[in-house]
Design a protein around this nucleic acid. Structure first.
Lengths: 155, 155
DNA sequence: GGTAAATTGGATTTCAATATCCAATTTGAG
DNA sequence: CTCAAATTGGATATTGAAATCCAATTTACC
């Protein structure tokens, strides 16, 4: 339902938010988030273009959040890589459709709207604040204690 | 966000529900719903296999709803052609993830759940009951009055 | 200044969803 | 029985998302 690209972008910014305001290299993010390195770099390029993250070339460079995690919402990230296509007029392209959607497409669009809304209401900080109590989480929210060698031999 | 296949399947069943319990030929449905005929026939085949609709070959045959519109929900139709993939465990496939989702994927899955729920709560009859007051609708809910030649020269 | 670390951008490949085409089969009606 | 209407199923084509590869560029550090 959500595209791979969106999924990857979200993983990346969560990882970055967890380390904010410190930068991470694309390679590090790829390893942590389990995203194919080459593809992740493309996704990150898109996020750079949209001002979600900022990149720094060269030795010691990398990518960092360009916004504070309290301020950056999931919706902004999603919109940057692949905006949710709301249904604005009848997809049948009927002449007599006017602006109003038929009941079917109204429901479909309502569903899309509710997703947008949920994403609009969730910041990266929200995600990072939550996990502290629940134990078995995906890696990145618990990153802080996996002090496993930023410059380790890990591949 | 919703695949073409899902969109097409929903259009088809709405058209069928509007005429229920009468059958329509695939060609008629294709014309009304503006779905490519050859592809629609594939989609309908899937719906037949799942018992959503029933088909009758030969002259005078066609496709009809196999369920009453009051009883058939959008979710059942969607599940028949392309079930919503809920997120059941951490997509990173981490060893230590347990059953619990990380906050990110929990939110994503919640969004999917809310869509499922909305679809589960909407029957085809609900869709057909609604339009009567609002004027500019997509064609099919208003079909009844477009008595335009079931056997017309229309194409 | 040279070198290695890092992102950038373009070209290309892979793959599944979408769509099309056609032959086979079923079936009602004359 | 024959014919035309209709679905069925298999094979194939098309398209865009996902992924990969590689050369070019930037930049910190010795």
């Amino acid at each position: 339902m959500f595209s791979q690209t969106v999924e990857y972008a979200l993983r990346a910014v969560v990882s970055l938010a967890d380390q904010a305001p410190q930068p991470q290299t694309t390679k590090q993010i790829a390893r942590i988030t389990r995203v194919p390195l080459a593809y992740l770099s493309k996704v990150l390029q898109g996020l750079v273009r949209h001002g979600i993250v900022a990149s720094q070339r060269g030795v010691g460079g990398g990518v960092r959040l360009n916004r504070s995690p309290e301020d950056l919402t999931l919706l902004e990230v999603v919109d940057a890589v692949e905006p949710i296509q709301r249904i604005r007029h009848c997809p049948l392209g009927l002449a007599a459709h006017g602006v109003r959607l038929c009941p079917l497409h109204k429901r479909l669009d309502d569903a899309l709207a509710s997703i947008e809304e949920a994403f609009r209401c969730t910041t990266l900080a929200d995600l990072l604040a939550e996990p502290t109590e629940s134990v078995p989480l995906c890696e990145f929210p618990t990153l802080r204690q996996t002090g496993r060698a930023v410059r380790g031999t890990s591949r």
